[in-house]
């Protein structure tokens, strides 16, 4: 295919060249122009539109904020949550430390230890929300979907640093048992048809 038609910058078909309005040549044309400019139907269209909007019922877009709240989209990044495993009630976090490493404002701090079974357990996990910029990297990097962003956006504080401990962010056990732990729907979450992609690990050699 030749590039001719793209290289030709003069006289592309379909373009209308507009050299501004013609100056009125005589008094009569000037008068017609004045009439055309002064008496316009558009003015009344404008009046009609605002009146129509006024007469519509329930047409207001105002959210009376403290009393009414908008629902936040699932991809919104607010205060973090630590989720639990669906079957065992255990914490999902495996203590890999990736979130601590990737956090660009260095606000995640975690300590781990080995329990009697030799499994890694989280001793301490804190996020300093005074420093967190809610970039979402921690949620993105987490291999277990353990740390995710919640939707609690009203988090003004009195101090610059505000530490959330693991207990604050982890789904409480009774909420979990009441089946109220909400699965994260936002970025990085499993898609709805994730189950259909699961294949058996080929172990039978």
């Amino acid at each position: 295919m030749s590039l001719e038609q793209f290289k030709n910058r003069n006289g592309i078909p379909g373009y209308i060249y507009f050299e501004g309005e013609e100056k009125p040549k005589n008094g009569w044309e000037a008068f017609k122009r004045v009439v055309r400019i002064s008496v316009k139907g558009e003015l009344f269209v404008g009046l009609w539109i605002v009146l129509r909007e006024m007469l519509k019922k329930g047409n207001s877009h105002t959210v009376q904020y403290p009393a009414e709240k908008l629902t936040i989209g699932p991809r919104y990044r607010a205060i973090h949550r630590l989720l639990r495993l669906l079957e065992s009630e255990e914490e999902r976090c495996i203590g890999c430390g990736l979130c601590e490493k990737i956090c660009i404002s260095n606000c995640i701090r975690m300590d781990t230890h080995y329990d009697e079974n030799g499994r890694k357990q989280i001793t301490e996990y804190t996020i300093n929300f005074g420093r967190c910029i809610f970039c979402g990297y921690c949620a993105e990097v987490c291999p277990e979907l353990a740390i995710v962003h919640g939707i609690e956006y009203e988090n003004a504080g009195e101090q610059r640093s505000h530490y959330a401990l693991k207990e604050d962010m982890l789904t409480p056990l009774d909420t979990f048992r009441a089946n109220k732990q909400e699965e994260f729907q936002g970025f990085g979450a499993l898609s709805d048809n994730a189950d259909s992609f699961i294949k058996k690990t080929p172990l039978s050699y």
Binding site: V50, L51, E53, M54, N59, S60, H61, T62, Q64
Partner: peptide, 13 residues
Amino acid sequence: KVLAFMQRRLGPM
């Protein structure tokens, strides 16, 4: 109030 309704707002509430 009238301006608010015309601009799809609520005005003083």
